[in-house]
Amino acid sequence: MTGHLQLKFTMPSDPRYLPVVRGAIAPLAAAIGWDESDCRAITLALDEALANIIRHAYHNRADGLIELECRESADGLEVTLLDNGEPPDRTKICARAIACDQPGGLGTHIIKDVMDTVSYQATPAGNRFVATKLLRKTI
C-alpha cells in the first residue's frame, strides 16, 4: 500500500468521546511505526491536548466542536486540533513546575515531554494546536 496515513474527524467537546479518540490514535501510531510504549505516550499526549480544550477553551461545555487531524508526515506524525473556544493563555502553559502540592498543569508537561514540537496559535478559524512527533528509526 502507498500514501501517507491520515485521520480526520470532528468531535463534540464532551469527555465521553475521549475514549473513542484514544481508540483511534493508538492504532494509527502503531501503523506508522511506533512501539507499544510510544503509542501509549502519543495517545496520552493527544488526549491531554483534547482535555485541555474541553476544560479551558470550552470551560467543560459539551456543545463545542473540536476538529482533529492526524497526518503521517515524511518523518513521523503531525497532529492538528482546531477549536472555537476561548484562546489559551500562553503565559500559563507549562508555567509551573510539577509539584506535589499543585496537581494542576500536568497535562501540558506531558504534551511537551512526549511530542517533539508543540505550538498554539489563535487564527481567524479558531484556536490551532499543532504537535509533531518524529519517528526515530533504529537500524
Binding site: 484514544r22 496537581p103 494542576g104 506531558i110
Partner: peptide
Amino acid sequence: RYIDSSGIATLLEVLK
C-alpha cells in the same frame, strides 16, 4: 487500562 493527568491530579489531592 488508562489513566490521564486528571487521574494523577486526583491521586495527588487524595494523598494531600
